[in-house]
Design a protein around this nucleic acid. Structure first.
Length: 835
RNA sequence: GCCCGGGUGGCGAAACUGGUAAACGCGGCGCCCUUAAAAGGCGCUUCCCCUUCGGGGGAUCGCGGGUUCGAGUCCCGCCCCGGGCACCA
C-alpha cells in the first residue's frame, strides 16, 4: 500500500486542472456558455504582490476556494478570478533604495504569487488574470477617472495635506505612523497643496442607506463604515458680525442650547480669520498662534489630554436667538475640516467649551435643567449634556429641550437665520500622489486654453489613453512627483488647442486601482471598452467577497462609491458591488502579529513543501472560526496532516478490501451506524458552509466520520454488503474534504467511485438515516443530572417518566422526598422536581 | 471617552431556537505492533473529595446578582483582553 504522498498527487492534479482549464468559465455569448446555469461570483481580495505570499494570503484563498468548490458542486457556474494590485509604495521604496525599476521587482513577485497559487491548488480562472500596473489595465483606470471628472466627481483644489519635510513629499494617511513619516521618522506637518479629490461625500447618504441592499455583511464592518461616514443631524445657524460685516454660519447638533452660547470660536485655518484682525491690536498674537498651530502635527493637535489654547480676536458676533453680542476667539480645538470651521460655544452643555470657558474666564450659563454626575465638573452640575426643561431661554422656558429643538429651528428658518442641516465626518477622497509607481492622472495643463492667467485642466481624450508611465532614472520624490523630472514626457501638446501643454505629474492612489478590478475580471482582455455591459450585468454583483478586516473601511467603501458612480454613469446595473462579505481574522504566531522584525513569520511555501498544500490549507480552515484570528502552531499542521494521511490510508485499504458497486446492508447495526454517521457528516458539513463558513467544525465532522470508519471497518470488511458501508463512508469523507483538500479528494474519490469529485454534485443527507430509533434520555432531579437511559425515540411521555423513576440512580435522590413537578422534553430529558 | 468583538480544560476550540459542558484537534500519560526507532493502532486525560477500586459525591464556562423545573446560552451590575474611532460641535 502506498503511503500518503502529497507532493506526487498534488502536482498530478494541478497539471490536470491546468491542462484541461477546469476552472475557466465563459461569458454570455461565448462558446460553452449555459444560460440555464445560475452564476456565482466568488472573489477574494486581490493580493498586493510584494515578496512572497504569507499565511494571511493562504487563509484568504483557502477559505475562498472552499466556497467556490462548494458552489460549483451545487450547480453554480462559479467565476473565481485572480489578479494583482501591483502599483504601490513598497515596490517604489525598493526602487529608491536599489535603483531597480519597480516593474522588475513587481514582475518577480507576481511570478512567485502565481507559482504558489498553483501549488496551493486554488481553483482560479487564469484566463481572467490581471495586474493593475499594466497599461492594458490602467488605461481603464484613467478612463474611469475622466468619467468622474466629466461628472464633476473628480476635482482639483488646494488642501492641507500631510507633508514630510525631510523627504519633501506628501504622504498618504497610511504612511503616517504616530504623526511621523513611516520611512524616515520625521514628524509630519500640514501643508497646503493643489490636489485631486473624488467627491465621495456626495454619496455619503447613499453609502449609508444602501447597507439595506446588502445580503450579508459582518455587523462590525457596517458599523465601522457608519462611524467613518459619521452622519449627524442638526442645524446651520448664522451668527452675524457687525464690524466688519460678515456672516458666520455654524453647524450644531444642539440648537436647543443656542441661548447658552457665551462665545464664538473659529478654527485657525478659517479663511476669514485674518480679515477680522487685520490692523487690530490682536493681529500679531493671532498670527503667531496660527503659525504655531500650523507647524504642529495632527497627532499633537489631536492629543487626548491637550490643554485648550486660543486667542481672543477682539471682535464679536450676535447670537440670533437673543441678540446678545458674544466675543470671538480662535482656537485649535475647532477643526476647519468639519462643519463650517466655526462653532458657537455653549460651555454650560459641552465639555470642550466648558474647559475653554474656564481657562479664559468666560461665563458659563445653564439653559437646560437636569444633572448628570458623570459629566458635571462644578457645583452647578455643569457641563450637563442630558435632556430636561429649558431655562434662561426666553419663550422656550419650561419646555423640554427635545420639543424646543424643532421649534427653535423652525423659528430660525422663518427669520432666515438658520435651517436644518446634516453634516458628515467623511471627507472627500484625496487621490493624487506625488509618486512614480501609480497610474498617471490623465490630464494636461494648457496656458493658452486657460483664463485669468490660470492654466486650463484639459482631459486627455479617450483615444489617447493610456497615458503611459515614462521610464525615469531617479524614483525619489523631490517635493514634487518624480514624473516631473521626465521633461520630455511632461511637455506635450494640448488636445484642445494643439499648443504646448504640460502633463499632470501626480499619479493616483492605489486604492483607485482596486476600486473597480472586480468588474474588469468580467471582461479582462477587452481593448475597446473597460468591460462589455452584458458581461458585467451577467456576473455582478460579487456573490461572496472574502478578505481581511483591515480593509473594512477604505477599500470596501471606495469600491462601493465607484460602483454607485459607475451605475449613475450607466456603466453597471448594480448599486452595491459585494452582496455578501466575509471578513477573515488574522493569523498570529506566538500570540503576536507576524513581522519580519519580530522574526515570527510563517512561510506557506515551507509548510507546503513539508506537508503538502492540502494540509496547510485544511489547517488554516481548521484552526478556529475563520472570521476570528488564530495562532499558528507547527503541531496543528502536523495534526491535520495526520488526519489527511489517515483518510488516505482508509481509502487505500477500502479500495483493496471492498467491492465497488455493492449496496450497503442496513440490517447490520454497525453498517447502519457507519452509514448514519456518513449522512450526519454530510448534513453537518453542508450546514456549516451555509451558516457562515464554520469550517473548523465542518472539518471536525469529517474527522469524526473517519474515526468511526476506523473503529468499525475491520468488522465490516468481512461481508460484501457491509464492506460497502465502509466504502461509502470513505468516499463521503473524500467528497466532503475536497473543498479544503482538493488534491486528496481528487485522487481518492474516483478510485472508490469511478467519478471525478468536482464533477459530482454535492451529496445530500438521507433524512431516514439522520434520525435514530433510540435516544439517550437524560434524567435530572432538581435540574441535576442523575442518569442517562436509552429510550425509544418515539416513546410517549408516560413511558419516559416510568423509565426515569425506575432508575436506581434516580431513586436514590427521590428517597423520602415528594415529587412536586415533572418536566418531560420528548426525545431529550426528564426533570423531576422534589421537595 | 464612544462603538464593535471576545473571556469555556495545560493549549486551539465545540455546544442548533435555554435541556448530557468540554465534540474535534494539539499537548501529556499508558498499552499494542517492532530486535529497536520512526510511522501506525488502541485507550485515558476539566478540577477537588471519598472509595471496599464496582463506583459515589461535589464544584466548574471572567466576577456578583436575577429570571426559570433547568442558564455557557436570557436580563441587570461590574472586571479583564482584542479591534475601530476619537477635541466631529
Amino acid at each position: 500500500m502506498a503511503s500518503y504522498d502529497p507532493k506526487a498527487i498534488e502536482s498530478k492534479w494541478q497539471a490536470v486542472w491546468a491542462e484541461e482549464r477546469t476552472w475557466e468559465v465563459p461569458n454570455p455569448g461565448q462558446p460553452g456558455f449555459d444560460a440555464a446555469k445560475p452564476k456565482s461570483y466568488v472573489l477574494e481580495m486581490l493580493p498586493y504582490p510584494s515578496g512572497e505570499p504569507h499565511v494571511g494570503h493562504l487563509k484568504c484563498y483557502a477559505v475562498g476556494d472552499a466556497i467556490a468548490h462548494f458552489r460549483r458542486r451545487h450547480g453554480f457556474e462559479v467565476i473565481h478570478p485572480m489578479g494583482y494590485d501591483s502599483f504601490g509604495l513598497p515596490a517604489e521604496n525598493n526602487a529608491i533604495k536599489t535603483g531597480e525599476p519597480p516593474a522588475v521587482a513587481t514582475a518577480r513577485s507576481i511570478e512567485s504569487f502565481q507559482r504558489q497559487f498553483r501549488e496551493w491548488g486554488i481553483s482560479i480562472d487564469w484566463a481572467r488574470e490581471l495586474a493593475t500596473h499594466t497599461p492594458e489595465y490602467y488605461r481603464w483606470t484613467q478612463w474611469i477617472f475622466l468619467q468622474l471628472f466629466e461628472q464633476g466627481l473628480a476635482y482639483r483644489t488646494e488642501a492641507a495635506v500631510q507633508w514630510c519635510p525631510k523627504d519633501a513629499t506628501v504622504l498618504a494617511n497610511e504612511q503616517v505612523v504616530d504623526g511621523r513619516c513611516e520611512r524616515c521618522g520625521t514628524e509630519v506637518i500640514q501643508r497646503k497643496l493643489w490636489q485631486w479629490f473624488f467627491r465621495i461625500t456626495e454619496y455619503a447618504d447613499r453609502l449609508l442607506a444602501d447597507f439595506d441592499l446588502l445580503e450579508s455583511w459582518p455587523e462590525n464592518v457596517i458599523t465601522m463604515q457608519r462611524n467613518w461616514i459619521g452622519r449627524s443631524e442638526g442645524a446651520e445657524v448664522v451668527f452675524r458680525c457687525n464690524d466688519p460685516e460678515l456672516d458666520f454660519p455654524v453647524f450644531t447638533t444642539r440648537p436647543d442650547t443656542l441661548f447658552g452660547a457665551t462665545f464664538f470660536v473659529l478654527a485657525p485655518e478659517h479663511p476669514e480669520l485674518m480679515r477680522l484682525v487685520e490692523g487690530t491690536p490682536a493681529e500679531e498674537e493671532v498670527r503667531e498662534y496660527v503659525n504655531r498651530i500650523g507647524r504642529e502635527s495632527a497627532q499633537e493637535r489631536g492629543a487626548e489630554d491637550r490643554e485648550k489654547t486660543g486667542v481672543p480676536l477682539g471682535r464679536s458676533v450676535v447670537n440670533p436667538v437673543n441678540g446678545e453680542e458674544i466675543p470671538m476667539y480662535v482656537a485649535d480645538y475647532v477643526l476647519m475640516e468639519y462643519g463650517t470651521g466655526a462653532i458657537m460655544a455653549v460651555p454650560g452643555h459641552d465639555g470642550r467649551d466648558y474647559e475653554f470657558a474656564k481657562k479664559f474666564e468666560l461665563p458659563v450659563v445653564r439653559v437646560i435643567e437636569g444633572e448628570d454626575s458623570e459629566t458635571a465638573r462644578d457645583d452647578e452640575g455643569l457641563p450637563y449634556a442630558g435632556d430636561g426643561p429649558m431655562t434662561g431661554s426666553g419663550r422656550f422656558d419650561g419646555k423640554n429641550n427635545r420639543e424646543a429643538y424643532e421649534e427653535i429651528v423652525e423659528w430660525l428658518a422663518e427669520e432666515g437665520r438658520g435651517k436644518t442641516a446634516i453634516n458628515y465626518r467623511l471627507r472627500d477622497w484625496l487621490v493624487s500622489r506625488q509618486r512614480y509607481w501609480g497610474a498617471p492622472i490623465p490630464v494636461v495643463y494648457c496656458d493658452a486654453c486657460g483664463e485669468d492667467g490660470a492654466a486650463a485642466i484639459v482631459p486627455v481624450p479617450d483615444e489617447q489613453l493610456p497615458v503611459e508611465l515614462p521610464e525615469i532614472e531617479d524614483y525619489a520624490p523631490q517635493g514634487k512627483s518624480p514624473l516631473a523630472a521626465a521633461e520630455e514626457w511632461v511637455a506635450t501638446e494640448c488636445p484642445r488647442c494643439g499648443g504646448p501643454a504640460r502633463r499632470e505629474t501626480d499619479t493616483m492612489d492605489t486604492f483607485v486601482d482596486s476600486s473597480w478590478y472586480f468588474i474588469r475580471y468580467l471582461d479582462p482582455r477587452n481593448a475597446e471598452v473597460a468591460w462589455e455591459r452584458a458581461a458585467a450585468d451577467h456576473w455582478l454583483a460579487v456573490d461572496q467577497y472574502i478578505g481581511g478586516v483591515e480593509h473594512a473601511i477604505l477599500h470596501l467603501m471606495y469600491a462601493r462609491f465607484f460602483t454607485k458612480a459607475l451605475a449613475d454613469l450607466g456603466h453597471v446595473s448594480v448599486q452595491e458591488p459585494f452582496a455578501n462579505l466575509f471578513a477573515q481574522g488574522m493569523i498570529t504566531r506566538d500570540g503576536a502579529k507576524m513581522s519580519k522584525s519580530r522574526g515570527n513569520t510563517v512561510s506557506p511555501a515551507e509548510y507546503v513543501a513539508r506537508y503538502g498544500a492540502d494540509s496547510a490549507r485544511t489547517y488554516v480552515c481548521f484552526m478556529g472560526p475563520p472570521e476570528r484570528g488564530g495562532d499558528w502552531t507547527d503541531e496543528g499542521v502536523e495534526g491535520v496532516n495526520r488526519f489527511l494521511s489517515r483518510l488516505w490510508r482508509l481509502c487505500e485499504e477500502v479500495e483493496e478490501r471492498t467491492a465497488p458497486s455493492a449496496e450497503p446492508d442496513l440490517g447490520v447495526p454497525e453498517a447502519r451506524e457507519l452509514l448514519a454517521k456518513a449522512h450526519w457528516a454530510i448534513e453537518k458539513v453542508s450546514k456549516d458552509f451555509e451558516r457562515g463558513f464554520q469550517f473548523n467544525t465542518a472539518i471536525s465532522a469529517v474527522m469524526e466520520l473517519v474515526n468511526d470508519a476506523y473503529r468499525l471497518k475491520d468488522d465490516l470488511y468481512a461481508e460484501l454488503r457491509t464492506g460497502a458501508a465502509v466504502r461509502f463512508a470513505a468516499a463521503t469523507a473524500a467528497s466532503l474534504i475536497f473543498p479544503f483538500a482538493p488534491h486528496l479528494g481528487a485522487e481518492v474519490f474516483p478510485r472508490l467511485t469511478g467519478e471525478r469529485v468536482w464533477e459530482r454534485e454535492w451529496p445530500v443527507a438521507d433524512p431516514e438515516l439522520l434520525v435514530s430509533d433510540t435516544v439517550t434520555l437524560v434524567v435530572q432531579v432538581n435540574g441535576k443530572l442523575r442518569d442517562r437511559i436509552e429510550a425509544g425515540a418515539e416513546a410517549p411521555q408516560e413511558e419516559l417518566l416510568a423509565l426515569a423513576r425506575a432508575s436506581e440512580k434516580v431513586a436514590r435522590h427521590l428517597d423520602g422526598k415528594e415529587v412536586v413537578k415533572e418536566i418531560v422534553v420528548p426525545g431529550k430529558l426528564v426533570n423531576l422536581v422534589v421537595r
